[in-house]
């Protein structure tokens, strides 16, 4: 009896699975592609991902509950403001250079593990949020729905920052003494990557 039941279940599952292809039919929600375009424009560009990760490490080092909770709101909003500003403000020369430099500064601060005053920390969060948002907003062209693209940019920032900050905050709560050092080493790697990038392509970035 039981055997029949399980065969029945198997048939049911196969029947369900055979319908999986119809789940791809998302075309009814038109225009959502631009949201993904905004998300992916950030997530597929290391020059944005690396500084964002560094910022998340820095926020995690400060401790989420105590001092850094607001960063999860401030940074995505700053990103979206920056991206929206790019719709009106003409392209800023040397912005790519500045954005890579942000990875060096943020990574260096993580490596130093030096407690930053809140005002300085949030100042950097807003400054780099706007600068990276602006660089992403410059990609909005033609038929792209700006508001969806900008929302996607903000969501990408939120995703990286939330995952990184929560992870570091959780890990630093453990007892193992190597964890804070591993976080600092990660910061030092990000800073070193930024320096090497500027060393090799900095002049082209400044010219563009």
């Amino acid at each position: 009896m039981r055997k029949f039941e399980s065969v029945g279940r198997l048939v049911f599952v196969i029947w369900l699975v055979s319908f999986a292809s119809s789940a791809h039919a998302h075309s009814t929600v038109k225009g959502v592609g631009d949201l993904y375009a905004g998300l992916l424009h950030v997530l597929t560009a290391l020059e944005h991902v690396l500084p964002f990760v560094a910022l998340s490490l820095l926020a995690g080092q400060r401790g989420l509950k105590a001092q850094a909770e607001a960063v999860l709101l401030v940074f995505p909003v700053a990103l979206m403001i920056g991206a929206a500003a790019a719709l009106w403000v003409p392209p800023i020369p040397g912005l790519a250079f500045f954005n890579v430099a942000s990875a060096i500064l943020l990574g260096g601060l993580v490596a130093a593990a030096w407690p930053l005053p809140g005002a300085v920390f949030y100042g950097l969060v807003i400054l780099f949020g706007i600068s990276h948002g602006f660089a992403n907003g410059e990609a909005i062209s033609g038929s792209i729905k700006a508001y969806l693209f900008i929302l996607g940019t903000g969501l990408a920032g939120l995703a990286i920052l939330a995952y990184g900050t929560l992870m570091v905050d959780f890990l630093l709560g453990r007892k193992a003494s190597w964890i804070p050092i591993a976080v600092r080493v990660a910061g030092s790697w990000i800073a070193a990557i930024g320096v090497l990038v500027l060393a090799t392509t900095g002049r082209t970035m400044l010219a563009s």
Binding site: A111, I181, V185, S188, A191, A192, I193, V195, L196
Partner: peptide
């Protein structure tokens, strides 16, 4: 290991 990558860069 924290300082080496920075000096190397």
């Amino acid at each position: 290991p924290v300082t080496f990558p920075l000096v190397m860069s």
